Computed example of a mutant assay.
Amino acid sequence: MTSTLVELTRDLVSIPSHDDAAVAGDFLEGWLRRETDADVTRDDAGNVIARKGTGAETLALVGHHDVVEPAPSQVADGSDDTEATEYVVDERDGRLYGRGTADMKGALAAALLAFREADPAGELVFASFVGEEVGGVGAQYAIERGFAPDYAVVGEGSTNYSGPDVTDVAVAHKGRRGSTITARGTAAHASEADAGENAIYRATAAVDRVRDLEPPSVGVTGETLEGRLTVTEIEGGSAMNVVPARCEFTVDERTVPGERAALESVADLEGIEWMVDQDLPPMRCDDDAFADAVLEAATAAQTADPELVTKPHATDAGWLSQAGTECVIYGPSEPGEAHTDDESVSIEVLERCLETYRRVAREWPTTR
C-alpha cells in the first residue's frame, strides 16, 4: 500500500494548480469515478465531492487541491513560467519534496485511498475544495449550496505540534480578520497648517485606539488560544509641505472562537473609516466524543501519544465550523513546511494519516 500512496501523492503533486486547479480537479474526479462506485460531482467552482454509504449522520474527509505559486526549483523546467505543465516531485530520505506535498496533496492522496477502501458506518464524503489559498472561496461556494456534513476531518497539518514525530488532533484554530482603516482630513499648505485637518494625526489616534484594545482569549483543551491585533502597513501624505488629507493603515487581527476585539470602535473617532477586507473564521470542535474518537484512531495508528492541540492559523475548517459542522484537523504537514521553496512531507507520516482516516471512516459515526 505504501507504493500506492506514494504514487498517488506524486501524481497529484506533479499537476500544477496555483493559477488554475482545473486539471487537478479533473484528476481527482477521474480517479474517483474509476476507483470507486461513489456518487461523484464537480460543481461550477471546481470542487470535487464524492459520497458513499448511508446513515443519519455524515462524516467528510476534507482537503483542497489548489496550492500557492511554486518556486522556480519546483517547476519541471526550472523557470519562472507560470504556465508550467508539471511540478517537480523528488523522493529522498523518506520524504517527498515538491509544491503541495505538505499543503496538502499528500493528505488528499491518503483521504482518497481511505475513502475508496471504506465500508463506512454512516454516509462518508470525500471533498476537495478549490481556492483555499485565497480565502476559502471553494468551501464557501459549496456551503452556500448545501454542503453540510455533520462531522469533518480536515487534512491540514497537525504533525509535530505536541512533540517530535507525532501527528496530533487539532480541535481549534484562530481566524484572521484583515482591515483597512482610513483617516480623512483637509489638505492645506504646511506653512498654514491650522487651515487644514491633518489626516496623519487622526490616523495616529486610531492606531493608539487599536493598541489599547484588549484581544480576547479562550481556553481550549487546556491551552489558551489568544487573539492578536497588529498594525501592519501605513501610507499617507502627498508632499513634505502639504498637510495630508488622507492616511490609511491596515490591521491584521487574529480572532478566536466566540469573541472579537472591538475594532469597530475606531470608527467612532472623527474622520475615521473602518473597512473589513478579509474575515476568515476561527474553528473549535464542541463535540468531545468526535474529537476523542479521532484521537483514539490517531493513537492506534502511531507509536507516539498524540494530543488534542490548537493551530495558530485559519483553514477551511473555519468555514465548515461556522456552518455547523463539527471539525477536527488531522494531517501530515509540519510547522514551517507549507509554502516553502523546499516543501516536503514524510512518507511515514502519510501512511500514519492513511491508517487514521481508515479507522475514523470505519468507526464513526458510532451508535450513540
Rank of each mutant, 00 (worst) to 15 (best):
S3T: 14
E7A: 15
D11R: 14
D11A: 15
A24I: 10
A24C: 14
G25H: 00
F27I: 02
E35I: 06
E35T: 09
G53E: 00
E57F: 07
H64F: 10
P70A: 11
A71N: 08
Q74H: 07
D80F: 11
D81R: 08
A84Q: 05
D90K: 15
G94N: 11
R99C: 06
G100D: 09
A102G: 06
L108R: 00
L108W: 01
A109I: 02
R116L: 03
A118M: 00
D119I: 01
P120N: 04
A121K: 00
A127P: 02
G131I: 08
V134A: 12
V137P: 05
G138C: 08
E144A: 14
F147R: 00
F147A: 00
D150R: 03
A152I: 03
V154P: 00
N160C: 12
Y161F: 15
G178T: 15
A183Y: 01
G185I: 04
D194Y: 15
G196P: 03
R209V: 04
R211N: 14
G219L: 10
V220I: 14
V220H: 09
T221K: 13
G222R: 09
M240N: 15
N241M: 11
N241S: 14
R246W: 05
T250C: 10
D252A: 07
V256L: 06
G258A: 10
A262C: 07
V266Y: 01
V266G: 05
P282F: 04
C285V: 08
D286L: 13
D288W: 09
P306R: 02
K311Y: 08
K311M: 12
T315M: 09
E326V: 07
E326L: 04
S333Q: 09
E334K: 10
V349F: 05
R352Y: 11
L354D: 01
E355K: 07
E363L: 02
T367L: 13
